[in-house]
Nucleic acid binder design. Structure first.
Lengths: 348, 348
DNA sequence: GTGAAAGCGCTAACAA
DNA sequence: TTGTTAGCGCTTTCAC
């Protein structure tokens, strides 16, 4: 490895001057600077970030912890973060927790040793506890919140998105609307559930516990929950299903197919989070779409600006709007007409 | 941050002893070790990896560069790598190049500054050039190869997989088989194209250039290519399509739908790389499936063992078998019968 | 505007 | 078995 010292010798200056020429060019006379940059180029010098970070006691790196890279939603989040980080010359340490608090804890510990400047995290259900261990670097939570105090959050309007979806079903004439809700120790699930209740309440439809089933956000959970919901006696069985995340929606749709139930004639379905699969499956799925990439990008930008400017400048929490996309998987209970293919923003 | 020195004071030993107690426990008397570990625990000590790496002139980190995190294939690869790395206590620096050689170059440079122990890369078309800049750390190429000498590779049997797919179409009676091939400066595309030719050759079917269209691996490229292929005059138009990667397959299928052509009655389609979308779309897609997760995991293990043991021990290149999965998107040209739903391994 | 020197937190000779 | 010491490559006072 070619070091600062090599460049210094080559340019006939001290290491201090080389360091300045590279990091604070204005502190060095133009001629010297030129000579140094030239030397650096010739030698193919690349600063050793470890040494630099050690000395400065802080590195130009960020930690990114997500829960499921195989979920396109999270992959998109990661890309948004990555792009924003790269734009500002930050490098990201990447971890995947599989929704497992232990893995999250380990990731946090490992990360600690690398002195990242900040942390972006999709918190696991035990994140609040895990995050206590971490020294007080700036943290931004994405997609959901652990409730840890002093942490910024960037999320979508889950309750609003869910409410719009359920209202749509109600407008179509549905009264028995089931929900596959997700784990209630995760904020998104709680909020979407909340939106579901609000919509029912607003329409004067009583909330029925037996129509609401939890799941662990995986495809198989969605399948099981749908199977359970749809095997209720005919009179009790929901005529529409609102599913709280994308993976579970896949499972639910597969379950419906297994049972030979027709969508939307016999059952309407709305999913949360759009995906290629949702858009191209048959019938195309009506969904609450999220600005996923923006979520990641914005979260990272929020973090980075909180680093440069004084912390106070920025909002502590951001909510992005969802978009409701009506496609073909929803229709009146009798199956009389199809969806209209329109889109609408939840708020303006 | 609590440092080694803090622990040393607390345990009444020198920093050297603390360092040993942590990194080479057997070099320290049991009693002392206990005392030190206890102190470390009490103080919540976490080693500063930057200092450690600087001193050892090598860090317990790996670089991972992939070309498209939004492609589930690559996301799965990343997860495999990640899991293997974590198992061995390595941390990964993650980069996404979007297939852009410039981004790759930057990623490589940034990485250099962090002194990773090794590099895992899905090489861009210009990787061979870019990799020259990098000091000689161990490198493993995943999925495809740049042809850089001295680099290990972990790939699937692309030619074999493609050949099996095309043979299947030939057996069904197809003679005009189109291929959407991908960029020919990427090894996977070349190899799959090779397999396609071999299958035709073996069956005595002449290779026709106008039936083979390149694409840039994106959905839209697949769509355009399919549109072009299917707008050939009736007599020239292929009765079957073999598409060289998953994203382009999506585009091709969408194009076919746009044109109102029925699959498999009027056109058979085989894709390369399985996905949830392929499995659940209608009709379910016949594909050459890849052991994607294993590819990533194995690539990382290969890299890591080459680090610990002497380099010589391991094979320089690994090929994994693909699996051919017949589903519903292929049938005889006339559309007389459906696929059989069987699976078969390409080799045994 | 530039250089000398100290030191970030750790590990690895070398001594004791 | 443990301590002393030097130094990884860089940045940053403090002099000049």
């Amino acid at each position: 490895m070619v070091s600062l010292e090599d460049v210094a010798k080559h340019a006939q200056v001290s290491t201090a001057t080389v360091s300045r020429a590279l990091s604070r060019p204005e502190m060095v006379a133009e001629a010297t600077r030129e000579r140094i940059l030239q030397a650096a180029r010739e030698l193919g010098y690349q600063p050793n970030q470890l040494a630099r970070s050690l000395r400065q006691r802080s590195s130009r790196t960020l930690g990114l912890i997500i829960t499921d890279i195989l979920n396109p939603f999270h992959a998109t989040l990661a890309k948004g973060v990555q792009d924003a980080a790269e734009k500002r010359d930050y490098t990201v340490f990447f971890f995947n927790t599989d929704e497992d608090p232990e893995k999250e804890k380990r990731a946090l510990n490992v990360l600690r040793g690398h002195l990242p400047r900040g942390l972006l995290i999709v918190p696991s259900p035990k994140a609040r506890e895990n995050l206590k261990q971490v020294p007080k670097i700036p943290i931004v939570e994405l997609d959901r919140t652990s409730g840890t105090p002093g942490v910024r959050t960037v999320m979508v309007d889950n309750a609003g998105g869910a409410k719009t979806a359920v209202q749509h079903l109600i407008e179509l004439g549905h009264r028995r609307i089931g929900m596959i809700v997700g784990r209630l120790d995760i904020s998104t699930a709680v909020e979407r559930h909340q939106g579901y209740r609000e919509a029912l309440l607003a329409a004067g439809i009583p909330y029925r516990e037996e129509l609401v089933l939890p799941g662990n956000h995986r495809e198989e959970d969605g399948r099981q929950a749908a199977l359970a919901l749809l095997s209720l006696p005919k009179e009790e069985r929901p005529t529409a299903l609102f599913v709280g995340n994308n993976e579970m929606t896949v499972g639910a749709v597969l379950a419906v197919r297994e049972l030979g139930i027709r969508i939307p004639e016999e059952l309407s379905i709305v999913g949360f989070d759009d995906s290629r699969w949702a858009a191209t499956m048959h019938p195309a799925l009506t969904v609450v779409a999220q600005p996923t990439y923006e979520l990641g990008f914005l979260a990272c930008e929020t973090l980075l600006s909180s680093l440069s400017r004084g912390q106070a400048a920025l909002p502590t929490s951001i909510r992005l709007d969802t978009t409701f996309i009506v496609r073909e998987s929803t229709a009146p209970p009798g199956g009389l007409s199809k969806g209209l293919g329109k889109q609408r923003r939840n708020r303006h």
